[in-house]
Design a protein around this nucleic acid. Sequence first.
DNA 1: CGTGCGCTTGACTTTTTTCAATAAAGGTGG
DNA 2: CCACCTTTATTGAAAAAAGTCAAGCGCACG
Lengths: 228, 228
Amino acid sequence: MEIIEALAAIPLFDGLSRQELEDMAMIVLRQDITRGRLIFAEGDAGTGFYVLTEGRVKIFKLSPEGKEQILHIMTPGEPFGEVAVFAGEPFPAYAEALEDGSVLFFPRAAFIELIRNNPSLSLKMIAMLSLRLRKFTAVIESLSLKEVPGRLADYFLSLGNEQGGDQWLTLDVSKNQLASLLGTIPETLSRILARMVKEGLIETRGQRQVRIADRMGLEELAGGLRRL
Amino acid sequence: MEIIEALAAIPLFDGLSRQELEDMAMIVLRQDITRGRLIFAEGDAGTGFYVLTEGRVKIFKLSPEGKEQILHIMTPGEPFGEVAVFAGEPFPAYAEALEDGSVLFFPRAAFIELIRNNPSLSLKMIAMLSLRLRKFTAVIESLSLKEVPGRLADYFLSLGNEQGGDQWLTLDVSKNQLASLLGTIPETLSRILARMVKEGLIETRGQRQVRIADRMGLEELAGGLRRL
DNA sequence: CGTGCGCTTGACTTTTTTCAATAAAGGTGG
DNA sequence: CCACCTTTATTGAAAAAAGTCAAGCGCACG
């Protein structure tokens, strides 16, 4: 049963016994998703949540004029939609597949039953939510305390931590998406990128590759000690 | 034992049996706090979390230049610092008492043990974290999609929902703090407030009282359909 | 080989911040 | 109860940051 392997690969569930995974496999539904597919919309009832097993999914909000703010880009292994399910409210944002892939769907009632009987699963759930809350805190801090150059510097620095140090870094999103993730628009991003290159903070290669040329300079920018 | 009553009054714990509350009372520490008192600082190790029982506490971040962004103002009954505790990381922000009051401190290890043996407590915990995550989502949306007038309109509207409908509403924070909560500075807030009054959207009385004079107008502002 | 979409650039407008000065409130000690 | 002092709030003028609108480039894809 391939669902079991998929479950076992989810960080949220590691440490669970074979039996527990099998119980869980009984309640989940596998669903393939194609690029551009809307998985749920803001306001939809949260009858269950999802875990991404393959592909990438963006979680975003829409303003009345149709401008979108990307909250998060999910990568395989991450759950999404749990907040609505556990808070007992409709989904607060949209979820759309950025590439072909697949998700597992966990129906609300059955999953709650599972948690109720499984303390270590609930602790994992709590830890996962806490971590996400912490990330959101950082986003709020960044949006409200820093200007766009600082937020972009943050982004490059954290990209540098994930991927190797002073290698060429690969942007995992389009620049339009990156702009939205940073709470700005493509034009502004483009200008700031150009200034960063001119100031020797970064180098670019093609559309999606960047190298940090002056880490200290970026850190000063992120910290607000320098301006572009 | 007064701690028991304090515990029973916390929404997070309602539905727990007398015995469960007593078990919990064994592990909590009561601590009185005075106005201005720093409860924890960003970077402190999270050895446990707090629940506010009396007074008000602000949770905030500091930028390198010392500008502060208030993330949340806690009112009695709300837990804070849990994120760090469950994520196993240091506190990501500062907590400072705005008034005299008191808190209960829950040591990490003992509380985790409690949760492990109490499924309904863990579900409550999960629900609480989910709700907070949902609020943060709204804050991020507001910061990145709306301009200051829209955020302020949001604030008044939600204040109107909490307190009675068309009554005079009482601001629970100073205007400096409100500015920080909205991700802006006092001067900007002051100007926008003045414009809102001139446009007949709100009335003010003294420094801390506001009445919504044109709810529809505010809603249009919040939705971006109108500009000031 | 053209069409389309993502990206960039320029000129202009709007929004917000900064700096500086003033005004109003609130608390304290006489 | 009042004068004084500190903190908090308002206002103006100028600068900076970001957003809008419009045009143009370039690369991928059919």
